[in-house]
C-alpha cells in the first residue's frame, strides 16, 4: 500500500524528483492545489468552451463541455471530477467507460460532521496515492505546509487587490490563483472600472451561479462598461469558494487536518446540505458591500443552482436569473436588454 507515502510529512526520505511535467486537470474549488503540487503535479483548470458532441437533453452544458474536452484528447495526465453534482458524477462514469484517466473525488454534501471530514480527508489521501503511482511523489517533511503557505499568500494578495479589479480580470485571477501559487495580482485598474457608467453612476452588483467560463467574461465586461460593477463574486468559482486563510501553527503540525478543515469546513458553497452557510455568507457580503443587484449565471439543467434562485432573492436585492444556453449567444440582444433593464431599475 502507498497510503503512508502520501501522508503529509510521513515520508522521511528526500522526495523523489519528478522527472516530467505531470498535470492534473480539474474544475472544482475542493481539489486543493497545495495537495496536488505537493505531490509533484501541476494543476490545470478545466475551462472548456462550448459543448458539441456531448450536448444531450438533460445534460448540463458545462458537464458536456468537460466531456468534450477530455474525450477529444485528455488535457492532462489525470482528470479529477467531484461528486458535487449528479451531472459531474455521471460525467466521470462516461469518461471511465472511455478509459480516460479520471479520478472521481467523493465530495460529501454534508460538511460539518466527523464522517464528512473523514470521507474528504481519506479521499485526498486516496488521490495522493494515485498521484504517486502515476509518477508523482509523496510530499516530504514540511513540503505540504510550504505549499499551503505559498498558495495562502497568493490568495491573500489577490483578495487584497480585489476592489481594484474589473470582474472579468478578477474571475480569471481567481482561477489562476488556484493553479499557480506564483500568480501575480493582475495590473491595477482598468480605467473603465472607476469610470461611471452611461448614467454617471456605478451600481454595485454581485455575481452568483455556476462556473464563469471564458466565454462569459464578455458579459461581465459589458455590464461593467454599462455602469455596473461586480463587487462580489459568489459564483461557483468565485472568491467565496476560496478557502479561509490557514492557521500556520496547525498547518505546520498537521497540514492535512488543516487543509481539510479549511476546504471542507470553511467554503460556503451552495451544494452543501444544509447550505445555510452559503446563504448567510451571501446575505452578509451583500450588506457589507452595499450590493444593489445580483446577476445569476446559471447553466441549463443545473438543479442545484436553479433551486436556489428564490432563496437568493431573500437577500432583498433584485436578482436577475440568466440561464446560460450553450447555443444562445451570451451577448444576445435579449440578454443585454435584461441586464440593461436591471441596471436602469437600480438607477
Amino acid at each position: 500500500m502507498v497510503a503512508a507515502e502520501s501522508k503529509p510529512g510521513g515520508s522521511r526520505g528526500r522526495p523523489a524528483p519528478v522527472t516530467r511535467g505531470l498535470t492534473l486537470a480539474h474544475c472544482s474549488p475542493f481539489v486543493p492545489p497545495e495537495w496536488v503540487v505537493a505531490h509533484g503535479f501541476r494543476p490545470v483548470w478545466l475551462r472548456p468552451s462550448r459543448p458539441a458532441a456531448w450536448s444531450r437533453r438533460a445534460v448540463c452544458p458545462f458537464a458536456a463541455s468537460v466531456l468534450d474536452a477530455v474525450v477529444s484528447g485528455s488535457p492532462a495526465d489525470l482528470v479529477v471530477l467531484t461528486t458535487a453534482c449528479d451531472q459531474m458524477r455521471h460525467a466521470a462514469d462516461v469518461l471511465e467507460q472511455r478509459r480516460a484517466p479520471v479520478f472521481l473525488l467523493n465530495l460529501p454534501s454534508t460538511r460539518q460532521t466527523p464522517t464528512a471530514r473523514a470521507i474528504y480527508g481519506e479521499e485526498l489521501m486516496r488521490l495522493g496515492r494515485l498521484l504517486v503511482r502515476l509518477g508523482g511523489r509523496s510530499p516530504g517533511p514540511g513540503e505540504l505546509a510550504q505549499e499551503m503557505a505559498r498558495f495562502d499568500e497568493a490568495r491573500a494578495s489577490l483578495l487584497a487587490a480585489r476592489g481594484d479589479l474589473p470582474a472579468a480580470v478578477f474571475a480569471r485571477a481567481s482561477i489562476d490563483v488556484r493553479t499557480d501559487a506564483g500568480t501575480r495580482v493582475p495590473p491595477r485598474p482598468d480605467p473603465r472600472v472607476d469610470a461611471a457608467g452611461p448614467r454617471g453612476r456605478v451600481t454595485a452588483l454581485a455575481l452568483a451561479g455556476g462556473p464563469v467560463l471564458d466565454e462569459d467574461l464578455g458579459l461581465l465586461e459589458w455590464v461593467e462598461s454599462a455602469g455596473g460593477r461586480f463587487v462580489l463574486d459568489a459564483s461557483e468559482w468565485g472568491e467565496g469558494t476560496l478557502p479561509r486563510p490557514f492557521d500556520r501553527e496547525r498547518s505546520d503540525g498537521w497540514p492535512l487536518v488543516e487543509l481539510v478543515d479549511a476546504y471542507l469546513g470553511s467554503i460556503p458553497d451552495v451544494f452543501s446540505r444544509p447550505n445555510d452557510a452559503f446563504h448567510e455568507y451571501f446575505r452578509r457580503e451583500i450588506r457589507a458591500r452595499d450590493v444593489r443587484g445580483v446577476v445569476v449565471l446559471r447553466r441549463l439543467w443545473c438543479d442545484l443552482w436553479h433551486a436556489e434562485i428564490d432563496r437568493l432573492r431573500s437577500a432583498e436585492v433584485p436578482v436577475l436569473d440568466l440561464v446560460v444556453d450553450p447555443i444562445e449567444d451570451r451577448l444576445s440582444g435579449a440578454t443585454l436588454g435584461r441586464l440593461e433593464a436591471l441596471l436602469e431599475s437600480l438607477g
Binding site: T83, R89, L104, N106, P108, S109, T110, T113, T115, A116, I119, R273, P274, N275, D303, L304, H306, A307, E308, D310, R311
Partner: peptide
C-alpha cells in the same frame, strides 16, 4: 431531491441530512 429538500429546509421543515458516499 437534494435541491428540492433544501428548499423545504429553507421553508422551515426540519430535516436530518445523512451522507451517502458514492
Amino acid at each position: 431531491v437534494s435541491a428540492i429538500a433544501q428548499r423545504l429546509a429553507g421553508m422551515g421543515h426540519r430535516i436530518a441530512w445523512w451522507e451517502m458516499p458514492h
